[in-house]
Amino acid sequence: MTKILLINAGSSSLKWQLVEMPAERVIAGGQVERLNLPGTIVKVEVGDKKTKETVETLDEVTAVNRVLKRMVTVGAVKSLDEIEAVGHRVVAGGTVFKQPIKLTPSGISQLKELSELAPLHNPLEVKCIELLAQRLAGVPQYAVFDSSYFHALPEKTAIYGIPYEWTTNYQIRRYGEHGISHAYLAQQAAHQLGRPLGELNLITLHLGSGASITAVKDGKPFDTSMGLTPVTGLIMGTRSGDVDPSLVPYLMKRLELETPDVVLHELNASSGLLGVSGVSSDMRDLHEAAKENPRAQLALDMFVNQVVKLVGAYYTEIGGADALVFAGGIGEKDPEIRQAVIARLGVLGIQIDPQLNKAGQPGALQTKDSACQVLLIPTNEELAMARDVQHLMAVAQN
Rank of each mutant, 00 (worst) to 15 (best):
A133S: 14
Y160E: 00
A143F: 06
L136N: 04
V126P: 13
L193F: 12
Q188C: 13
L197R: 12
K156N: 07
A215E: 05
K220Q: 09
I129P: 14
Q99A: 15
A152E: 11
Q171P: 03
A189R: 08
W166M: 03
Y164L: 01
A152L: 07
S148G: 08
L114A: 02
T168V: 01
L120Y: 13
T214V: 08
G107V: 00
G210P: 13
T167K: 04
L111D: 03
A211P: 11
V90T: 02
A211H: 05
N201Y: 08
S181F: 12
H206R: 05
A158N: 05
R195F: 06
H151K: 06
T157W: 01
L136G: 06
L111C: 10
K156W: 01
P123Q: 10
T214Y: 04
R89T: 02
P100V: 04
L103Y: 02
E177I: 13
N201F: 09
T167W: 00
A211F: 09
G219W: 08
G138M: 00
L124T: 15
F145P: 12
D218R: 13
E177K: 11
D146R: 06
I203M: 13
H88R: 01
P123Y: 12
R195H: 09
G210E: 05
H121L: 05
L205W: 02
A143I: 07
L193M: 15
F150K: 02
L124S: 15
R135H: 06
T95Q: 14
T104N: 12
L124R: 15
P154V: 00
L103P: 11
L200W: 07
L153C: 03
V144T: 00
Q134R: 12
L193N: 14
F145C: 10
G107I: 00
S115V: 01
P119L: 12
Y149K: 09
L132V: 11
K102G: 14
I162Y: 13
T104C: 11
L111A: 10
S147T: 15
T204Q: 12
A183V: 06
A92L: 10
L114N: 05
G138T: 00
V96E: 04
G161P: 11
H191Q: 14
G194A: 07
P221I: 01
K156G: 01
Q192N: 12
H191W: 09
Q110M: 12
I162N: 13
A133K: 13
F145E: 04
A190V: 11
L117V: 07
L197W: 07
E155T: 05
G176E: 01
I129M: 08
Q188D: 14
